[in-house]
């Protein structure tokens, strides 16, 4: 048995060394002094946090990022619940097909999926041509490089992350519970509202946290589809790191973003913990 536990060592070492330590390094970096010509200098300072928290440019970007994360999460939830419900109610061959439709986007790069939206929604793309032909619009819509498109593409990217935990939670609900509910006089909607929805909540909670965390820090999609108009936190962080070569300040911004995200998650989790505790069967 002891030797069995030793087998975990390489993985633990890998993550400790190249995952945990880098996060520690990031926090440490955020206190380093800046230097010109070099990524960072000697000594420590709190200056970067003062700058990050004192400038409306950064606070605004942070606020926008959190807001966008929230909107994306909400939309993902709205799309994912019916999908997960449908998935949990189909059987056999069709189940596999629908499941494949939902998870296969997970296996395709974010970049490629975003690119698909570019193709569909460019000024002379099929969406615009179809809308023009149908007489629904008079002029082609310019959706490329707008926040709306970024949200749409992020919802597309993260929907599978929301569907999977909810579908798992739904699958764990015994069909006998629904039968019990109907035998006691509850109709379909009442059964859904009083039994299915509360019992799926742990899955919803997990999905919401995951999608929120991932979408706040999403970099590629806004960079590709958002254009210059929308300044979001991840883009600013990357610009500081790669463009301005200001590592300590970039690190400080990243830490601020991480702490803000985790605070939102913590508040959400605390507010909903009672419900989740109860429904964890």
């Amino acid at each position: 048995m002891k030797t069995r536990l030793l087998l975990g060592l390489p993985a633990v070492a890998l993550l400790l060394l190249f995952f945990v330590l880098p996060y520690v390094e990031m926090v440490a970096m955020s206190f380093r002094a800046p230097a010109s010509g070099l990524p960072f200098g000697e000594g420590h300072t709190l200056l970067h946090y003062q700058r990050a928290l004192g400038d409306t440019l950064y606070l605004g970007a942070l606020g926008r990022s959190l807001l966008m994360g929230g909107v994306v999460t909400l939309l993902c939830l709205l799309l994912s619940f019916p999908l997960a419900l449908h998935l949990s109610r189909t059987q056999g061959r069709w189940h596999v097909v629908f499941f494949a439709c939902i998870v296969s986007p997970l296996l395709i790069g974010v970049l490629v999926r975003n690119f698909g939206w570019m193709l569909l929604l460019t000024v002379d793309g099929p969406a615009n041509r179809w809308l023009l032909a149908a007489g629904l619009i008079e002029r082609p819509l310019r959706v490329l490089f707008t926040p709306g498109l970024v949200v749409l593409a992020l919802v597309h990217v993260f929907t599978p992350f929301m569907v999977l935990p909810i579908a798992t939670a739904l699958r764990n609900i015994s069909p006998a519970l629904r039968e019990a509910s109907t035998s006691l006089g509850a109709g379909r909607f009442e059964t859904f509202w009083r039994v299915t929805l509360p019992l799926a909540f742990p899955g919803v909670q997990a999905g919401v946290v995951l999608v929120f965390v991932l979408s706040v820090a999403a970099y590629v999609t806004p960079a590709l589809l958002g254009g210059q108009g929308v300044a979001l936190m991840p883009a600013i962080v990357v610009r500081e790191l790669i463009g301005s070569f200001a590592w300590p300040f970039g690190a400080a911004l990243a830490v601020v973003m991480a702490v803000a995200t985790l605070s939102v998650v913590a508040v959400f989790t605390l507010l909903t913990q009672g419900l989740a505790e109860r429904t964890r069967a």
């Binding site: 190249f18 820090a217 999403a218 970039g250 973003m257």
Partner: peptide, 11 residues
């Protein structure tokens, strides 16, 4: 988020 891990690893 991949971005945060990437930043940490960069340093």
């Amino acid at each position: 988020p991949e971005l945060l891990t990437a930043i940490g690893l960069l340093f």
